[in-house]
Design a protein around this nucleic acid. Structure first.
Length: 441
RNA sequence: CGGGGUGUGGCGCAGCCCGGUAGCGCGCCUGGUUUGGGACCAGGAGGCCGCGGGUUCAAAUCCCGCCGCCCCGACCA
């Protein structure tokens, strides 16, 4: 799905000369407070004991410190400047899988870790419109992945200036609502305009013979999505993995008392396993001894396996397995043609997860609320609140101060309310756009 | 960086006030009996009680210092 878009994988250095970051004014400001800096190239024994036994060797201080990439725009566009000569070199479409470091004051497992893994796409285009199309196309792709693979419904839209990426012209984002009614920014796609190309002198010769700066985009999703997946679907019994992404889609639990039964159910279980595997289903047969079937059920449930097939002597006698869905419910499944039946069940579970998550989100969304209703909503559990926005940063700041809610996105047309709001939900002035507020991670 | 809490077998915790043999549950190992929704019995392994110093005949326990982690605030994908 991602590879079909014509981007090529590439890799750029983890260490970036500090001066690179300084070239784009907004970008520096945005990241200055969270960048890890490498100042020395080696340690030296101090003669002390314990953790103080080594210290940076003063003699090895770098003339220019290196920073550890918080994102790679600067180093990649420094290279783009060398690689791009002509409009024939455009568009240049790269993607890199990398770790990045952002030294946050407070971390949160999966959602905000000091180091995280992500993919970051970086593209250069000849025109504003081409870059816009790219940023939009990627946003659509992310949405498709979130909904079709993760079964995580999302809102797409554009960020306000206060929430946009440092150095971007515009930031598009997709946002999901977690089960605690807090929003999660699941990924972003930036139209960078010519901000970086001007800073790094990424110029190209046009067909007409002139020189122009390229138009860039960058976009990424990270290991944060794993947190989103967990927080979207899990319940009190543990993880629920959507079938499309589940490492194990089907767990087969054989049930036996005597040795003869064990031989029989293991044999049938093994056949079922092979049949499912041949059909491309990721399946495991749980032959662990000394663990009772009930314990195995709980074990696989906690791991989020979407479908469990129980096979005991009574099932075999009836020519069936007992299929238990992680989303609830047990029903017999005929052994004859079981791969096809399992496939259908998995796809139904996938759909059910998306539908459940979407219903939950809508149940915790309000539209066209008055200021008083908005305040009550945000203090009483929260969720997505749609309303008119005057466009003023002061209103945004006041709302954040009062409720901790921020504008997650100015939603795309398909998510907007049928009646466009006329006035700002907060100050009552003329509305310039509909906004979606929520308390966020 | 401020305020609060907490560090004790792999995990979760009790013990600390009032100093005196390091304990419980889960997990792990061995044997046996079990096995259609978290099995039971018996035996066993595993701990510089966060680190450093002090008080004391004696410190998990009291005192001082440091470090880690968690929660709350400012910052953020």
């Amino acid at each position: 799905m991602f590879k079909a878009t014509g981007h090529h994988n590439a890799y750029f250095p983890l260490f970036i000369p500090m001066s690179f970051l300084a070239k784009e004014a907004e970008h520096v400001e945005g990241f200055a407070k969270e960048v890890a800096v490498v100042t020395h190239t080696r340690l030296k024994a101090t003669g002390k004991s314990g953790s103080g036994a080594v210290a940076p060797d003063p003699a090895s201080a770098l003339e220019e410190p290196l920073i550890i990439r918080p994102t790679s725009e600067t180093i990649i566009y420094a290279m783009f400047a060398k690689w791009i000569q002509s409009y024939r070199d455009l568009p240049l479409l790269l993607n890199q899988w990398a770790n990045v470091v952002r030294w946050e004051m407070r971390t949160r497992l999966f959602l905000r870790t000091t180091e995280f893994l992500w993919q970051e796409g970086h593209t250069a285009h000849a025109t504003d419109a081409d870059a816009e199309r790219e940023a939009r196309m990627i946003l659509g792709l992310y949405r498709k992945f979130a909904e079709e693979w993760m079964a995580m419904p999302v809102l797409t839209g554009v960020k306000t200036d206060s929430e946009k990426f440092a150095g971007a012209l515009r930031t598009y984002a997709f946002e999901a609502l977690m089960q605690d009614n807090k929003a999660l920014q699941a990924g972003t796609s930036h139209h960078l305009g010519q901000n970086f190309s001007k800073a790094f002198e990424v110029k190209y010769q046009t067909a007409a013979g002139g020189l122009d700066f390229v138009w860039n985009t960058s976009w990424g999703v990270s290991t944060r999505l794993i947190g989103g997946l967990i927080m979207t679907h899990s319940d009190d019994n543990g993880l629920i993995a959507p079938p499309q992404l589940a490492p194990v889609q089907v767990a087969i639990v054989p049930i036996w008392k005597s040795d003869e039964e064990k031989t029989q159910v293991s044999g049938v279980g093994s056949q079922v396993k092979d049949e499912l595997a041949r059909a491309g289903i990721r399946v495991e047969l749980d032959l662990r001894e000394s663990m009772k079937p009930g314990a195995k059920y709980f074990d696989w449930e906690a791991k989020g396996v979407p479908l469990r097939l129980e096979i005991g002597p009574r099932d075999i006698a009836a020519g069936q397995a007992t299929a238990a869905r992680r989303t609830g419910g047990k029903a017999p499944m005929k052994l004859d043609g079981i791969a096809a039946a399992a496939r259908i069940a998995l796809s139904e579970i996938q759909e059910a997860l998306l539908a459940t998550a979407r219903e939950r989100r809508e149940r915790h969304s309000i539209r066209g609320a008055t200021k008083a209703q908005f305040l009550e909503f945000m203090t009483g559990g929260g969720g997505f609140a749609y309303g008119g926005f005057c466009g003023r940063a002061t209103c945004e700041a006041e709302i954040k101060e009062a409720t901790a809610a921020t504008i997650r996105v100015l939603p795309d047309a398909e998510f907007r309310s049928p009646e466009p709001p006329a006035t700002c939900m907060w100050c009552g002035a003329k509305s310039v756009a509909e906004a979606v507020w929520a308390q966020a991670y």
